[in-house]
Amino acid sequence: MFSRNARGLLDFLMAALCLWTAWHHTPAGALVRRGAAWAFNSRSTARPLLAYYDGVSSSGVTPSALVPEAPPVRPLSEVETLAYGTHLALKGLQPKARKPALGLAMELGIPTESLLDAAQGPDATRKLLEGLAGEFPSEEARLTAVFAGRIPARYAQERVSAVGGPFTLEELSRQLPPGYEDATVAATQALALTTAFGLKWPVPEATRVSSPFGYRIHPTLGTRKLHTGVDLSVPQGTEVRVVEDGTVRRASEDAVNGRVLIIDHGRGVTTAYCHNSELLVKVGQRVKSGDVIAYSGNTGRSTGPHLHYQLELSSQPVDPLRFRSGSRAVATGSQL
């Protein structure tokens, strides 16, 4: 089919393509490029080695920016919870990854610096999302536009519409062109934060926080450990209510947590309720916000009747008081 010379040229071109791919698009190539940059005291454009495995490029998200510095001063509407979550996710992005959102803000006449400002950011982000609502009706599509840009989001929305699928973030991300992994990660985190801001409280609002989230001297072990939730001082037998719709993922008992429930609320958000005296729901059961799911108690490793309430975003424990509007709780004791 080909002459010997033509086959030789074709083999050479294919070999050159393989070397270029290995140099620019594999962990080994990245390692060699970084080593060469160090040896010759130059700058490397190689992605971090782990980025080849976790799907997030070097322009990705900084997790430490994803927890609000202070809780909202008042209860938030459904629109405002989305704005708060999106604002925090934007703050967590590296500057390069914020360009689509900043470009959209400029188009809509929103000062770009206001999107990242602690005081103005949530309101500016709400205006940005409202400005996209006409073109992108679902909130998942709007978030895709914020983090990926108008044109890629429009393409993904049209593709999902063509195949008749739901406009979920998962379906939209599948239709995005290659290279938008950061946008999907950021949009996913915005949805998780939005859900966290909308959570209710498992016991009466006026309940005293006897031990807050954070490092403390463990009441029984005597060592400094991270307290991954908040202890709420309630009498034994107090009704424990689920803070949002969800599915029961765990309903069991162990020596540390006592009788414990874990509820999956979707979007990477779970809540846990520990040391109960009685569990009223089973694994796999669907529950609605406000349902009584347990009675508080003193089971497991506990120094007195209370409820240990824990919030996790993407399997990482966070302070639930940071997402509770108007929260000014002060710990006055130390329970476990």
Rank of each mutant, 00 (worst) to 15 (best):
V292G: 02
S252T: 11
N276C: 12
T270H: 04
L193W: 09
R208I: 12
L280E: 02
A187K: 10
K200M: 10
I293Q: 06
A255C: 00
I262D: 00
P202I: 03
N257D: 13
R250A: 14
Y273W: 06
S211Y: 05
D254I: 09
P202K: 05
V283W: 03
D291V: 00
S296C: 00
V292R: 10
H218K: 14
D264R: 10
P212V: 04
A187S: 08
S233A: 15
Q189K: 12
H227E: 07
G297A: 02
E239V: 01
V243D: 04
E239K: 13
G258N: 02
G300N: 02
T238G: 01
P202R: 06
P204A: 03
Q285W: 04
G284H: 15
R208E: 13
G222V: 12
D264H: 07
H218S: 05
V240I: 14
L279G: 01
H218I: 05
D254V: 08
A294S: 06
D264I: 11
L226A: 00
G290H: 04
G290K: 08
T194Y: 05
A196E: 01
T195M: 13
T270V: 15
E253A: 08
S233Y: 06
K200Q: 12
T247L: 13
L261V: 00
D231F: 06
A255W: 07
L221P: 04
Y273G: 10
G297E: 01
G297F: 02
L193Y: 11
G290S: 03
T220N: 06
A196R: 12
I262V: 15
N257K: 11
D291A: 12
G300A: 01
S289E: 15
L193S: 07
A272E: 09
H218N: 14
Q236T: 10
R267Y: 11
I217Y: 13
V230Y: 03
T195L: 11
G290W: 07
R241N: 01
R301M: 13
G266P: 09
E205R: 12
D254H: 05
S211P: 07
T238Q: 00
V260F: 01
T238W: 00
D231C: 11
L226G: 05
V260H: 07
S296Q: 06
N298Q: 09
V203F: 00
V292E: 00
G297N: 01
Q236V: 10
H218L: 12
P219I: 02
L279R: 05
T299Q: 06
A187Y: 08
G214T: 14
T228Q: 15
F197Y: 15
L193G: 06
S289W: 00
S277R: 12
S233H: 09
G246L: 02
K288Q: 14
V281R: 15
S210I: 13
